[in-house]
Simulated assay, not measured.
Amino acid sequence: MEPNTTPGPHYTRYVAIGDSQTEGIGDPDDAGGHRGWADRFAERLGAADPGLHYANLAIRGRRAAQIRTEQLAAAIALRPDLVTVLAGMNDIIRPRFDRDALLGHLDAMFAALTALDIRVVTFTFPDIGAVAPFARPLSARVRALNADMRRLTRQHGVTLIDFEPVAATTHPKVWAEDRLHLSPLGHDLVARAVAATLGVPGADETWRQPLPPNRRTVAGAVAGEVRWVADHLLPWIVRRLRGRSSGTDIEPKRPTLLPVPS
């Protein structure tokens, strides 16, 4: 696929809000922190728009209500012309899932941002049941939310990147070992998807291409599932029972607009 060479819209103030995926968990940088798709996308956008400033208010573990309460007003105060919103997965995976409440928070965020003529980008979710077999009972929730997201984004004029039908988004190599967070390859895929959707020069649609099959023996697959339960699922359950979030005492990594290094 040929890269885009047509100049896209010009942005100078980009703000990312969301949870761990937008914070960049699963994509370590070289300084003991996290890079992530939003950083990667900002770098691509900054190469096309050298005056770009970028802030990232996302914090791991946050649900939609918290993102709305803690991050929305802070994002608006930065007077952005571009905002990405990634919220909802931490709501979906909770046993007491309130779909109406989640949709209400998403609707309110989209309405507040688009009322200010801010370009808003959001996403549907891949089928997490295809990523982690133990999560298959949640697949119906994901599909229902994705359908709601398509409706909400049409209603508000929000740009939607629809990951659900893209097979590459459920490939094992796109996900970190915990299967809750994207791997560096996955973060790169999302960054490329946003760049292509917004028409950033040099971006193309290769993010949609299938990845090579991941071949494992039955024994290897079973061993992998057992290891995942012990190393990741059980500790997650323990944290939930204790009422402790992975985002406790965590602050946004980039709370103010800063230039993007070229």
Rank of each mutant, 00 (worst) to 15 (best):
P3Y: 00
P9H: 10
V15I: 07
A16P: 00
A16K: 03
D19I: 09
D19A: 15
S20L: 04
G24R: 04
R35V: 09
A38M: 12
R44K: 14
Y54E: 03
I59F: 09
T69W: 09
A74R: 15
A75T: 03
V85A: 03
M89I: 12
I92K: 04
P95Y: 00
R96P: 04
R96Q: 15
D100L: 11
L106S: 02
A108P: 07
A111Q: 14
L113H: 08
A115P: 02
T122N: 08
T124Q: 09
A140C: 05
A147I: 07
M149T: 08
I161G: 01
F163W: 11
F163D: 00
V166S: 00
A168V: 02
H171I: 05
P172D: 05
A176F: 14
R179M: 07
S183G: 04
P184C: 04
D188G: 08
V190P: 00
R192H: 01
A193D: 00
G199M: 02
Q209V: 08
P210W: 04
N214E: 14
N214L: 12
R215H: 15
V226L: 13
V226M: 13
R227I: 04
L234I: 15
R240G: 04
D249K: 11
K253R: 14
R254Q: 13
P259C: 03
